[in-house]
Amino acid sequence: MRRLTPETRWAYTFLLPWLIGLVVFQVGPMIASLVLSFTDYDLIGPPEFAGTANYARMTEDPKVARAIGNTVVYTLLHVPLAIALALALALVLNRITGRAAGVFRTIFYLPSMTPYVAVGVLFLFLLNGQAGMINQFLGLFGIEGPQWTTDPDWVLPGIVLMSLWNLGSTTIILFAALRNVPRELSEAAMIDGAGTWQRFRAVTLPMISSALFFVVIINTITSLQMFDQVYTMFFGNQTAQQSYGDAALFYVVYLFQQGFQFLHMGYASALAWVLFLVIAAITLVQVKVGNRLVYYEAEERAG
């Protein structure tokens, strides 16, 4: 067996608390939930082995299909919009210099400090079709706004709108990447006669592609796991649960309902595992595709 150098040993010593946490709070529960996903378990009695019944049930459950549909539509709308907007904001931030720069960076990050539950409640008011400020604003232009919270066709767009309010983290990551783009490259391109768009397209974009790739992955994962705001808005209390139907039924919301409302913890575990595998698969594909599109500075040096 290869002997560990003292340095490595110390590294493991310091890693130990985290490793214990990983095993106890993450890997352990994951394995347990995998086991539970093959059982019929109501939280009260002991779990009974049920084979793949939970997984088979998912294929027949129309609510699973609806939840997946909602979640996918949301992800497809949210991720590109969020990243485009965050990039635009980051480009603006990058232009601002001097004292004001710090102020604006803080302001753009502030929404990220707001608890999700508060955001959900706030937007329920803002989006209200009869008295909400968003429709009052649209009314200024003579537009009769939709019933964001009660029209099933407009519930998802409303949630996307809410999600675009909080772009702080994505903006900050892209902003940091923009700051690292060497000015010389841009200047050289300008001397060669490249226009604004060409410089952005040929210089800036490749230089920040690794950061862009990262925010795409992270935003995709968080979108697929959307829960807090939606649950607060449309499922937070009994009246809310009775009033909006499935228009805002996201995958994790349904998983939670099955587990804790209907006491089908085995089924909920199966739902959780499918989500995990789907996210793992999507991330894998993104990494494969990303490797072809992303420019890493380190590669060049190595090569």
């Binding site: 539970l36 779990p47 991330t283």
Partner: peptide, 21 residues
Amino acid sequence: RAAAATLATALVTTLAACGGV
């Protein structure tokens, strides 16, 4: 974190499970 994606959900599921079993 990408790999640990659904852990939060799995965690909730099993914390409750451990006692029951």
